[in-house]
Design a protein around this nucleic acid. Structure first.
Lengths: 155, 155
DNA sequence: TATTGTTATACTCTATAACTATA
DNA sequence: TATAGTTATAGAGTATAACAATA
């Protein structure tokens, strides 16, 4: 019979050689889970989360995105962007500026305080990123970023 | 002043050249979001989700994991594994077998029906994976998997 | 008629603590 | 005393639909 008669547990290590551990979807999910956990910890001391950090980053980088553009780029629902921008605005980190070319749209711009906080938060996330990248050989890190960019921005 | 006076929206395209788009955490999150959405669609026709698919995969691969080992490997809380195994067991896809070496532990084993469903679901996820990998040059795909494995399993 | 931002709501996911049975 | 599995629950995250203002 195919369901093993005596089912004895094995160690977690052996799971790493399973077919699932070669699955791209699974590897992406696990790598992302590890990175997310580390980023959450690093950003918490600045009162940010990965989501709000991303919005603040684009605002502080003078990208001048509308809320809709933020939603599309960050793959979030527009209504979620509302909540994130609300909170950042309440804390004086970003402002909603009317888009002169479309009065329906708000362009999200960082304040001085927002830029200062972002600069500090960025230091924390860069430390996390270095720790994450430590798992791959130095000469491969550039390539990893390039390959991930192709995955993340394929259309 | 640093907050741009006339805030005019730009296209989403320009966000791709922003500093955020070079952030490893962000790239992982976005690539994972894309892969997850595709996997969700592909697995839905089999009544599975990425989580339950992963548990079924390990059970069908005769890895003989305990629930605790599943929790650790999949980075989920043990109580979440309970719910997933409950559902798979109710559908006759897996069984809980007592671990002879530790009567507290359950080893999760796939039934014949579970193996059959997994084989079908795996075909769907492999198609998703091929579509995802199409974004990177063929000669780089092996390396991408290897690098992601290092990220996902660094300790 | 379509789109931007907004509000409201329901649903899923996640995190936590407490309990039981075994070790 | 510690661990595997379970249960319950609250909080965070996500998805959806409907609405007002503007295009």
């Amino acid at each position: 019979m195919s369901t093993a008669g005596k089912a004895q547990a094995i160690g977690v290590d052996r799971m790493r050689t399973s077919a699932l551990a070669r699955d791209l979807n699974f590897l992406l999910a696990r790598a992302n889970a590890l990175a997310l956990a580390a980023a959450n910890t690093a950003l918490a001391e600045h009162g940010l989360k990965p989501r709000s950090y991303s919005v603040l980053a684009l605002a502080a980088d003078d990208v001048l995105p509308t809320q809709r553009e933020l939603a599309e780029f960050l793959r979030l629902d527009p209504s979620q962007i509302v909540a994130i921008v609300d909170e950042l605005e309440k804390r004086g980190l970003v402002e909603r500026h009317p888009d002169p070319s479309d009065r329906r749209a708000n362009v999200v711009v960082a304040t001085e305080a927002g830029r200062a906080l972002f600069a500090r938060a960025q230091k924390s996330t860069r430390a996390v990123e270095r720790a994450l990248k430590a798992a791959v050989p130095p000469e491969e890190r550039e390539r990893l970023g390039e390959l991930l960019r192709q995955l993340a921005f394929r259309e």
